[in-house]
Design a protein around this nucleic acid. Structure first.
Length: 297
DNA sequence: AAAGATGGCAACCGCTGCCAC
DNA sequence: GGTGGCAGCGGTTGCCATCTT
C-alpha cells in the first residue's frame, strides 16, 4: 500500500497549491480523456491521488463518480430493458433504496442510473396514483399491474430470441415467486375483431371515462367515500392515466386479466412492437382515454 | 415562433463506515 | 481509543432537451 502510494507520488507532477483550483460541473472531453488514459495506465482506486496525478483539477470523489457512472468500459447505455426493470422493481421491494446493492445485480448499470430510474419513472407513477411510492399499497400496485406486464414482455422477447440471457432467467424466476399466488403472468385478453367498443361493460369490467366505474376495486387503489352504485364505484380519475381494465380476477391481489376494446387498442398503439422494444412504463398501460372516444362520439 | 413547464440525467453534497496510523 | 483520510452510498440539485401552450 505504502509502495503503491510512493509509486504514485513519483509519477505525480508537482502542483502549485495556489494555482490548483478545483473544477466543478460537467466534464469536458479533455478531462474524460485524461481520466481514461490515466486509469488505463495505473488502474483505479486512491481517487484523490489519482486526480492529482492525472492532472485533473477535480476531487477524487468527482473522478470516481465520473469513472464509475460514465466512463467505465462495461457501462451499458440506453433504456433499461423490461428484464432490468423487473429486477429493479423486485429487488427494490426486497431491499428498498439500496441502490448499489440493486445495481450489483444489473451488470453494466450504475446505482445512479437505477436511482434516477426509480425517481423519475416509478415515483412518477406513484404520484399519479396518489400513493406513496414506498407504501405497501404501491408495492401491491406494482405487483398487480406492472410486474405482470413486464414479465409478459420478458417472455415475449425471450421466446422471440432463442438465446435467453442469465438475467432473463433470473428475473423470470424471481418474478414468478413475487407475483401473487405464483401463477402465470398477467394475461392481456385481446378483444374479438367484431367486438364493439363499449363504455358499458359487464360487472367484472372497469370503465374509465369521466369517472371510473369499478365493481371490484383492488385494495391498493383509493376507494371513494361515496356509497357504491349498482355494485359499482365511481372514482374521479382526472389525475390518472388509465385504460379500460377487465378486473375479473382482481378482487384479491392476484393475477389480473385486463381487456381492451378495439378502439382503445387502436387509439393507444397498445403493445406495439415499438413499445415492446422500448422502455415500458405505466403510461402505456394506463393511457388516458378521452371521454368522447370512450363513448364512441 | 417563443416562452414556460416538465422530465431525464449527470454531477454534487453530506453522511457513514472502514482502515491505517 | 482517538483521529484523519478515503471510499462508498443515498439524497439532492441543476442543467439541458423536449414538450406544451
Amino acid at each position: 500500500m505504502l509502495c503503491a502510494q510512493f509509486q504514485f507520488t513519483l509519477f505525480c507532477p508537482k502542483t502549485n497549491e495556489e494555482e490548483f483550483e478545483l473544477r466543478k460541473g460537467p466534464w469536458t472531453l479533455e478531462e474524460d480523456t485524461l481520466l481514461i488514459h490515466y486509469i488505463a495506465g495505473h488502474g483505479e482506486g486512491r481517487w484523490n491521488l489519482l486526480a492529482k496525478c492525472a492532472g485533473l483539477k477535480r476531487t477524487g470523489k468527482s473522478c470516481r463518480l465520473r469513472w464509475l457512472n460514465y466512463l467505465k468500459p462495461d457501462i451499458k447505455r440506453g433504456n433499461l430493458t423490461p428484464q432490468e426493470q423487473l429486477l429493479i422493481l423486485e429487488l427494490h421491494s426486497k431491499w428498498g433504496n439500496r441502490w448499489s446493492k440493486i445495481a450489483q445485480h444489473l451488470p453494466g448499470r450504475t446505482d445512479n442510473e437505477i436511482k434516477n430510474y426509480w425517481r423519475t419513472r416509478v415515483q412518477k407513477q406513484a404520484r399519479q396514483l396518489k400513493i406513496e411510492s414506498n407504501s405497501k399499497r404501491f408495492l401491491e400496485a406494482v405487483r398487480c399491474f406492472w410486474m405482470p406486464r413486464l414479465l409478459e414482455q420478458v417472455e415475449q422477447t425471450s421466446s422471440s430470441s432463442p438465446s435467453s440471457s442469465t438475467m432473463e432467467t433470473q428475473s423470470s424466476t424471481i418474478t414468478s415467486s413475487l407475483l401473487p399466488n405464483h401463477e402465470a403472468p398477467l394475461a392481456f385478453s385481446s378483444p374479438q375483431p367484431n367486438e364493439k367498443p363499449s363504455s358499458v361493460t359487464n360487472s367484472s369490467t372497469i370503465c374509465f371515462s369521466d369517472s371510473m366505474r369499478i365493481s371490484q376495486l383492488p385494495e391498493f387503489l383509493e376507494r371513494p367515500t361515496s356509497p357504491p352504485l349498482d355494485d359499482c364505484y365511481f372514482v374521479d380519475i382526472s389525475g390518472y392515466d388509465m385504460e379500460v381494465f377487465n378486473l375479473a380476477t382482481m378482487s384479491s391481489v392476484g393475477p389480473c386479466d385486463f381487456s381492451l376494446s378495439d378502439s382503445q387498442m387502436a387509439g393507444s398503439d397498445w403493445i406495439s412492437d415499438d413499445v415492446a422494444c422500448t422502455l415500458w412504463n405505466m403510461d402505456e398501460l394506463w393511457q388516458l382515454r378521452k371521454p368522447e372516444e370512450e363513448l364512441g362520439i
